[in-house]
Design a protein around this nucleic acid. Structure first.
Lengths: 143, 143
DNA sequence: TGAATATTTCATGATGTCAAGTAAATCGGT
DNA sequence: ACCGATTTACTTGACATCATGAAATATTCA
Protein backbone atom coordinates (compact mmCIF):
# COMPACT_ATOMS: atom_id res chain seq x y z
CA UNK A 1 0.00 0.00 0.00
CA UNK A 2 1.26 3.43 -0.89
CA UNK A 3 1.95 5.94 1.83
CA UNK A 4 0.81 9.51 1.26
CA UNK A 5 4.32 10.51 0.36
CA UNK A 6 5.86 7.67 -1.59
CA UNK A 7 8.04 8.79 -4.46
CA UNK A 8 5.99 7.28 -7.24
CA UNK A 9 2.77 8.91 -6.10
CA UNK A 10 4.42 12.30 -5.68
CA UNK A 11 5.90 11.94 -9.14
CA UNK A 12 2.50 11.30 -10.66
CA UNK A 13 1.00 14.21 -8.72
CA UNK A 14 3.68 16.50 -10.05
CA UNK A 15 3.14 15.26 -13.60
CA UNK A 16 -0.55 16.02 -13.29
CA UNK A 17 0.37 19.50 -12.11
CA UNK A 18 2.48 19.89 -15.23
CA UNK A 19 -0.37 18.65 -17.41
CA UNK A 20 -2.66 21.23 -15.85
CA UNK A 21 -0.16 24.03 -16.41
CA UNK A 22 0.46 22.98 -20.01
CA UNK A 23 -3.25 22.73 -20.70
CA UNK A 24 -3.82 26.29 -19.54
CA UNK A 25 -0.90 27.67 -21.48
CA UNK A 26 -2.23 26.14 -24.67
CA UNK A 27 -5.77 27.17 -23.98
CA UNK A 28 -4.92 30.78 -23.21
CA UNK A 29 -2.54 30.98 -26.16
CA UNK A 30 -5.19 29.69 -28.55
CA UNK A 31 -7.75 32.10 -27.06
CA UNK A 32 -5.34 35.03 -27.26
CA UNK A 33 -4.86 34.44 -30.98
CA UNK A 34 -8.49 35.41 -31.34
CA UNK A 35 -8.14 38.21 -28.78
CA UNK A 36 -10.24 36.27 -26.33
CA UNK A 37 -9.59 35.59 -22.67
CA UNK A 38 -9.77 32.06 -21.32
CA UNK A 39 -13.18 32.62 -19.78
CA UNK A 40 -14.57 34.10 -22.98
CA UNK A 41 -13.24 31.20 -25.04
CA UNK A 42 -14.78 28.74 -22.63
CA UNK A 43 -18.22 30.37 -22.78
CA UNK A 44 -18.04 30.69 -26.55
CA UNK A 45 -17.19 26.99 -26.75
CA UNK A 46 -20.24 26.11 -24.67
CA UNK A 47 -22.56 28.33 -26.69
CA UNK A 48 -21.27 27.00 -30.00
CA UNK A 49 -22.90 23.68 -29.12
CA UNK A 50 -26.26 25.04 -28.00
CA UNK A 51 -27.84 28.25 -26.69
CA UNK A 52 -27.93 28.38 -22.91
CA UNK A 53 -29.65 30.52 -20.26
CA UNK A 54 -27.28 32.72 -18.29
CA UNK A 55 -27.99 30.67 -15.20
CA UNK A 56 -26.76 27.46 -16.76
CA UNK A 57 -23.60 29.08 -18.03
CA UNK A 58 -22.85 30.10 -14.46
CA UNK A 59 -23.39 26.53 -13.28
CA UNK A 60 -21.05 25.16 -15.93
CA UNK A 61 -18.42 27.75 -15.07
CA UNK A 62 -18.98 27.29 -11.35
CA UNK A 63 -19.25 31.02 -10.81
CA UNK A 64 -21.86 33.61 -9.90
CA UNK A 65 -24.50 34.49 -12.50
CA UNK A 66 -23.61 38.16 -12.12
CA UNK A 67 -20.19 37.31 -13.46
CA UNK A 68 -21.59 35.74 -16.60
CA UNK A 69 -23.37 38.97 -17.45
CA UNK A 70 -20.06 40.71 -18.07
CA UNK A 71 -18.47 37.88 -20.02
CA UNK A 72 -21.47 37.57 -22.34
CA UNK A 73 -21.58 41.38 -22.62
CA UNK A 74 -18.05 41.37 -24.02
CA UNK A 75 -18.73 38.52 -26.40
CA UNK A 76 -21.91 40.25 -27.54
CA UNK A 77 -20.10 43.54 -28.13
CA UNK A 78 -17.81 41.68 -30.49
CA UNK A 79 -20.67 40.06 -32.34
CA UNK A 80 -19.76 36.51 -31.33
CA UNK A 81 -22.83 35.94 -29.19
CA UNK A 82 -26.36 37.31 -28.97
CA UNK A 83 -29.03 37.33 -26.29
CA UNK A 84 -32.48 36.00 -27.18
CA UNK A 85 -35.62 35.88 -25.11
CA UNK A 86 -36.76 32.44 -24.03
CA UNK A 87 -40.28 32.03 -25.39
CA UNK A 88 -41.12 29.63 -22.57
CA UNK A 89 -40.05 31.90 -19.69
CA UNK A 90 -39.77 35.63 -20.08
CA UNK A 91 -37.38 35.92 -17.13
CA UNK A 92 -34.78 33.91 -19.00
CA UNK A 93 -32.32 35.20 -21.57
CA UNK A 94 -30.72 32.66 -23.84
CA UNK A 95 -27.18 33.36 -24.94
CA UNK A 96 -26.49 31.93 -28.38
CA UNK A 97 -23.39 31.96 -30.59
CA UNK A 98 -23.74 33.87 -33.84
CA UNK A 99 -22.47 32.46 -37.10
CA UNK A 100 -19.22 34.37 -36.56
CA UNK A 101 -19.06 33.03 -33.04
CA UNK A 102 -19.47 29.45 -34.20
CA UNK A 103 -16.71 29.91 -36.74
CA UNK A 104 -14.38 31.34 -34.10
CA UNK A 105 -15.21 28.46 -31.76
CA UNK A 106 -14.40 25.97 -34.47
CA UNK A 107 -11.04 27.60 -35.13
CA UNK A 108 -10.35 27.58 -31.41
CA UNK A 109 -11.08 23.88 -31.13
CA UNK A 110 -8.79 23.12 -34.03
CA UNK A 111 -6.00 25.11 -32.44
CA UNK A 112 -6.26 23.18 -29.19
CA UNK A 113 -3.75 20.55 -30.08
CA UNK A 114 -2.23 20.28 -26.67
CA UNK A 115 -3.65 16.91 -25.83
CA UNK A 116 -4.32 15.61 -29.31
CA UNK A 117 -0.87 16.02 -30.76
CA UNK A 118 1.20 14.40 -28.01
CA UNK A 119 -1.32 11.60 -27.83
CA UNK A 120 -0.39 10.75 -31.40
CA UNK A 121 2.83 9.35 -30.00
CA UNK A 122 0.91 6.71 -28.09
CA UNK A 123 -0.45 3.53 -29.58
CA UNK A 124 -4.13 2.69 -29.45
CA UNK A 125 -3.47 0.17 -26.70
CA UNK A 126 -1.57 2.75 -24.66
CA UNK A 127 -4.30 5.32 -25.13
CA UNK A 128 -6.81 2.80 -23.89
CA UNK A 129 -4.74 2.13 -20.79
CA UNK A 130 -4.36 5.86 -20.19
CA UNK A 131 -8.09 6.41 -20.61
CA UNK A 132 -8.95 3.68 -18.13
CA UNK A 133 -6.44 4.88 -15.56
CA UNK A 134 -7.68 8.47 -15.83
CA UNK A 135 -11.26 7.28 -15.49
CA UNK A 136 -10.47 5.37 -12.33
CA UNK A 137 -8.52 8.33 -11.01
CA UNK A 138 -11.58 10.50 -11.53
CA UNK A 139 -13.79 7.96 -9.85
CA UNK A 140 -15.76 7.20 -12.98
CA UNK A 141 -16.48 3.55 -13.40
CA UNK A 142 -15.42 2.01 -16.67
CA UNK A 143 -18.74 1.46 -18.46
CA UNK B 1 -2.58 5.79 -36.80
CA UNK B 2 -5.09 7.94 -34.99
CA UNK B 3 -6.93 10.64 -36.86
CA UNK B 4 -7.35 13.97 -35.15
CA UNK B 5 -10.89 13.10 -34.22
CA UNK B 6 -10.98 9.42 -33.39
CA UNK B 7 -13.22 8.55 -30.47
CA UNK B 8 -10.52 7.23 -28.17
CA UNK B 9 -8.35 10.32 -28.54
CA UNK B 10 -11.27 12.67 -27.96
CA UNK B 11 -12.23 10.67 -24.91
CA UNK B 12 -8.75 11.02 -23.44
CA UNK B 13 -8.70 14.75 -24.26
CA UNK B 14 -12.00 15.18 -22.46
CA UNK B 15 -10.73 13.21 -19.46
CA UNK B 16 -7.71 15.48 -19.28
CA UNK B 17 -10.05 18.46 -19.34
CA UNK B 18 -11.90 16.93 -16.41
CA UNK B 19 -8.64 16.33 -14.55
CA UNK B 20 -7.71 19.98 -15.06
CA UNK B 21 -11.08 21.18 -13.79
CA UNK B 22 -10.95 18.88 -10.77
CA UNK B 23 -7.41 19.93 -9.97
CA UNK B 24 -8.36 23.58 -9.87
CA UNK B 25 -11.44 22.99 -7.77
CA UNK B 26 -9.39 21.17 -5.20
CA UNK B 27 -6.58 23.65 -5.29
CA UNK B 28 -8.82 26.68 -4.88
CA UNK B 29 -10.86 24.98 -2.18
CA UNK B 30 -7.72 24.13 -0.20
CA UNK B 31 -6.43 27.68 -0.66
CA UNK B 32 -9.77 29.19 0.36
CA UNK B 33 -9.68 27.27 3.63
CA UNK B 34 -6.68 29.42 4.50
CA UNK B 35 -8.32 32.52 3.01
CA UNK B 36 -5.83 32.47 0.17
CA UNK B 37 -6.46 32.82 -3.55
CA UNK B 38 -5.03 30.30 -5.97
CA UNK B 39 -2.26 32.64 -7.05
CA UNK B 40 -1.29 33.41 -3.46
CA UNK B 41 -1.22 29.72 -2.58
CA UNK B 42 0.96 29.01 -5.56
CA UNK B 43 3.49 31.70 -4.68
CA UNK B 44 3.52 30.66 -1.04
CA UNK B 45 4.18 27.10 -2.15
CA UNK B 46 7.14 28.21 -4.23
CA UNK B 47 8.58 30.35 -1.45
CA UNK B 48 8.18 27.61 1.14
CA UNK B 49 10.89 25.70 -0.70
CA UNK B 50 13.36 28.55 -1.10
CA UNK B 51 13.47 32.35 -1.15
CA UNK B 52 13.18 33.76 -4.66
CA UNK B 53 13.75 37.14 -6.31
CA UNK B 54 10.56 38.76 -7.57
CA UNK B 55 11.76 38.31 -11.11
CA UNK B 56 12.00 34.55 -10.81
CA UNK B 57 8.56 34.28 -9.27
CA UNK B 58 7.19 36.06 -12.34
CA UNK B 59 8.99 33.61 -14.61
CA UNK B 60 7.58 30.63 -12.72
CA UNK B 61 4.08 32.10 -12.83
CA UNK B 62 4.52 33.19 -16.43
CA UNK B 63 3.25 36.67 -15.68
CA UNK B 64 4.59 40.23 -15.51
CA UNK B 65 6.83 41.14 -12.57
CA UNK B 66 4.53 44.05 -11.75
CA UNK B 67 1.84 41.52 -11.01
CA UNK B 68 4.00 39.66 -8.52
CA UNK B 69 4.47 42.86 -6.54
CA UNK B 70 0.78 42.85 -5.59
CA UNK B 71 0.60 39.16 -4.77
CA UNK B 72 3.65 39.31 -2.52
CA UNK B 73 2.29 42.54 -0.97
CA UNK B 74 -0.85 40.69 0.12
CA UNK B 75 1.09 37.71 1.45
CA UNK B 76 3.42 40.07 3.29
CA UNK B 77 0.51 41.99 4.84
CA UNK B 78 -0.68 38.71 6.31
CA UNK B 79 2.72 37.83 7.67
CA UNK B 80 3.20 34.76 5.49
CA UNK B 81 6.06 36.18 3.46
CA UNK B 82 8.75 38.80 3.93
CA UNK B 83 10.99 40.75 1.59
CA UNK B 84 14.72 40.63 2.20
CA UNK B 85 17.53 42.46 0.46
CA UNK B 86 19.80 40.31 -1.66
CA UNK B 87 23.33 40.83 -0.28
CA UNK B 88 24.80 40.08 -3.70
CA UNK B 89 22.70 42.57 -5.68
CA UNK B 90 21.02 45.55 -4.09
CA UNK B 91 18.49 45.84 -6.90
CA UNK B 92 17.03 42.47 -6.01
CA UNK B 93 14.44 41.76 -3.34
CA UNK B 94 14.17 38.20 -2.15
CA UNK B 95 10.73 37.05 -1.13
CA UNK B 96 10.92 34.42 1.60
CA UNK B 97 8.24 32.51 3.49
CA UNK B 98 8.09 33.24 7.23
CA UNK B 99 7.74 30.45 9.76
CA UNK B 100 3.96 30.99 9.68
CA UNK B 101 4.06 30.93 5.91
CA UNK B 102 5.91 27.64 5.82
CA UNK B 103 3.42 26.10 8.22
CA UNK B 104 0.52 27.30 6.06
CA UNK B 105 2.20 25.94 2.95
CA UNK B 106 2.65 22.57 4.63
CA UNK B 107 -1.01 22.43 5.62
CA UNK B 108 -1.94 23.37 2.07
CA UNK B 109 0.14 20.58 0.63
CA UNK B 110 -1.41 18.07 3.00
CA UNK B 111 -4.89 19.23 2.01
CA UNK B 112 -4.18 18.71 -1.66
CA UNK B 113 -5.42 15.19 -1.75
CA UNK B 114 -6.98 15.43 -5.15
CA UNK B 115 -4.38 13.42 -6.93
CA UNK B 116 -2.99 11.45 -4.02
CA UNK B 117 -6.18 9.95 -2.72
CA UNK B 118 -7.63 8.58 -5.96
CA UNK B 119 -4.18 7.29 -6.86
CA UNK B 120 -4.41 5.08 -3.81
CA UNK B 121 -6.87 2.99 -5.80
CA UNK B 122 -4.19 2.16 -8.32
CA UNK B 123 -1.55 -0.50 -7.83
CA UNK B 124 2.14 0.36 -7.95
CA UNK B 125 2.39 -1.18 -11.40
CA UNK B 126 -0.54 0.90 -12.64
CA UNK B 127 0.91 4.07 -11.18
CA UNK B 128 4.15 3.35 -12.97
CA UNK B 129 2.33 2.92 -16.26
CA UNK B 130 0.40 6.15 -15.67
CA UNK B 131 3.59 7.99 -14.84
CA UNK B 132 5.33 6.82 -17.98
CA UNK B 133 2.37 7.62 -20.21
CA UNK B 134 2.06 11.11 -18.74
CA UNK B 135 5.78 11.66 -19.17
CA UNK B 136 5.60 10.72 -22.82
CA UNK B 137 2.54 12.87 -23.28
CA UNK B 138 4.47 15.80 -21.89
CA UNK B 139 7.38 15.06 -24.14
CA UNK B 140 9.73 14.25 -21.27
CA UNK B 141 11.90 11.26 -21.96
CA UNK B 142 11.81 8.49 -19.40
CA UNK B 143 15.17 8.88 -17.66
C1' DT C 1 -50.97 37.58 -2.61
C1' DG C 2 -46.51 35.98 -1.37
C1' DA C 3 -42.37 33.17 -2.15
C1' DA C 4 -39.05 31.75 -5.38
C1' DT C 5 -36.34 32.35 -9.71
C1' DA C 6 -33.56 34.76 -13.57
C1' DT C 7 -31.11 38.48 -14.69
C1' DT C 8 -28.81 42.83 -14.09
C1' DT C 9 -26.42 46.58 -11.57
C1' DC C 10 -23.23 48.21 -8.22
C1' DA C 11 -19.45 48.01 -5.02
C1' DT C 12 -15.22 45.78 -4.06
C1' DG C 13 -11.09 43.02 -4.46
C1' DA C 14 -7.69 40.03 -6.92
C1' DT C 15 -5.33 39.30 -11.01
C1' DG C 16 -3.39 40.47 -15.37
C1' DT C 17 -1.19 43.75 -18.89
C1' DC C 18 1.53 47.71 -20.26
C1' DA C 19 4.11 52.16 -19.74
C1' DA C 20 6.80 55.01 -16.93
C1' DG C 21 9.89 55.84 -13.09
C1' DT C 22 13.73 54.83 -9.67
C1' DA C 23 17.74 52.48 -8.16
C1' DA C 24 21.56 49.66 -8.97
C1' DA C 25 24.69 46.88 -11.81
C1' DT C 26 27.30 46.31 -16.06
C1' DC C 27 29.57 47.51 -20.31
C1' DG C 28 32.67 50.06 -23.42
C1' DG C 29 35.68 53.60 -24.58
C1' DT C 30 39.11 56.50 -22.93
C1' DA D 1 40.62 52.80 -13.33
C1' DC D 2 36.99 56.05 -14.48
C1' DC D 3 32.59 57.69 -16.44
C1' DG D 4 28.58 57.84 -19.17
C1' DA D 5 25.23 54.84 -21.51
C1' DT D 6 22.70 50.81 -21.41
C1' DT D 7 20.54 47.08 -19.09
C1' DT D 8 18.30 44.95 -15.22
C1' DA D 9 15.11 44.62 -11.00
C1' DC D 10 11.48 46.31 -8.88
C1' DT D 11 7.59 49.45 -8.02
C1' DT D 12 3.86 52.49 -9.26
C1' DG D 13 -0.10 53.94 -11.88
C1' DA D 14 -3.79 53.36 -15.23
C1' DC D 15 -6.81 50.20 -17.03
C1' DA D 16 -9.38 45.64 -18.40
C1' DT D 17 -11.05 41.18 -16.82
C1' DC D 18 -12.84 38.03 -13.59
C1' DA D 19 -14.85 36.85 -9.31
C1' DT D 20 -18.02 37.57 -5.24
C1' DG D 21 -21.99 39.39 -2.74
C1' DA D 22 -25.99 42.52 -1.97
C1' DA D 23 -29.74 44.92 -3.77
C1' DA D 24 -33.15 45.99 -7.54
C1' DT D 25 -36.38 44.44 -11.22
C1' DA D 26 -39.23 41.39 -13.72
C1' DT D 27 -41.50 37.17 -14.02
C1' DT D 28 -43.24 32.69 -12.59
C1' DC D 29 -45.37 29.60 -9.41
C1' DA D 30 -47.76 27.96 -5.23
Amino acid sequence: MATRTDTLTLEVVELIGTVVARYHEEYDRAAAEHSLTGAQARVLGLLSLEPLPMRKIAVRLKCEPSNVTGIVDRLETRGLVERRPDPADRRVKLAAATETGRRTARELRDALDFAREPLAGLSDAERTVLRDLLRRMLGEETP
